[in-house]
Design a protein around this nucleic acid. Structure first.
Length: 204
DNA sequence: AAGGAGTCCAACCGCTATTAT
DNA sequence: AATAATAGCGGTTGGACTCCT
């Protein structure tokens, strides 16, 4: 059996100090990203590997953009959320230099409210005033979901990372129940542009 | 100026899929 | 094949900060 990832009683918690950041950055600069289990000890950090990974991915990675989200990025997040639901890592994968945590925080603090102010339900991306209209029943587990939409040739998403959700995703309550039907009825979001790319200028 | 409410975001927690033994 | 650890994910929290009264 493997060893546990860290000895919990010997690990720091809470905010990272500058020294800890430097140790982590220096170590990864030399050795690259790798085994998070052994990294803390090797780098001289009293942190759990999981904590190191999170710190690196969300804060220290050199390719992170940081700063305010552009309008293009906002639009893209909203569109991808309509398709994918709360799959933040997939959404962040479409936004160069952004992390899943950052996208998630931005959604919860800005975009959710913005949609509500526009009269759009942020959970299902429908106009809230139309919620009472009768809708044809669409089975939840119909397999014509976002993955197929996204993976189809008609959607020119750039990049080569895998955006396919697991075939039997471990959380099937985190996706918009019928995001595809929402898109079918894109007249409810008249400006929904499904060209899910982000311009070079916005990404740089 | 004080302090309560609201907001933001870094970090932690707990879960599941994957992988190693 | 079974079992346990790791990696990675989304949800949640706590503290710092800002705004409002």
């Amino acid at each position: 059996m493997r060893k546990p990832c860290c000895a919990k009683q010997d690990t720091n918690k809470g905010a990272w100090s500058k020294q800890e950041d430097e140790k982590l950055v220096n170590y990864i600069r030399i050795h690259g990203e790798g085994c998070w289990r052994t990294l803390p000890q090797a780098a001289g950090l009293l942190r759990c590997g999981k904590s190191c990974r999170l710190r690196w991915i969300n804060y220290l990675r050199p390719d992170l953009k940081r700063g305010n989200f552009t309008e293009d990025e906002e639009d893209l997040i909203i569109k991808l959320h309509a398709l994918l639901g709360n799959r933040w890592s997939l959404i962040a994968g479409r936004l160069p230099g952004r992390t899943d945590n950052e996208v998630k925080n931005y959604w919860n603090s800005h975009l959710r409210r913005k949609l509500v102010n526009m009269g759009v339900d942020p959970d299902n991306h429908r106009l809230m005033t139309l919620n009472l209209l009768p809708r044809p029943h669409i089975p939840r587990n119909s397999d014509t979901g976002a993955a197929e939409i996204l993976s189809g040739p008609q959607v020119p998403i750039t990049g080569d990372d895998n955006i396919h959700p697991p075939a039997n995703s471990r959380r099937d309550n985190d996706r918009v129940p019928d995001a595809e039907s929402c898109l079918d009825e894109s007249n409810q979001l008249p400006d929904l542009n499904l060209d899910l790319t982000i311009s070079v200028s916005a990404a740089s």
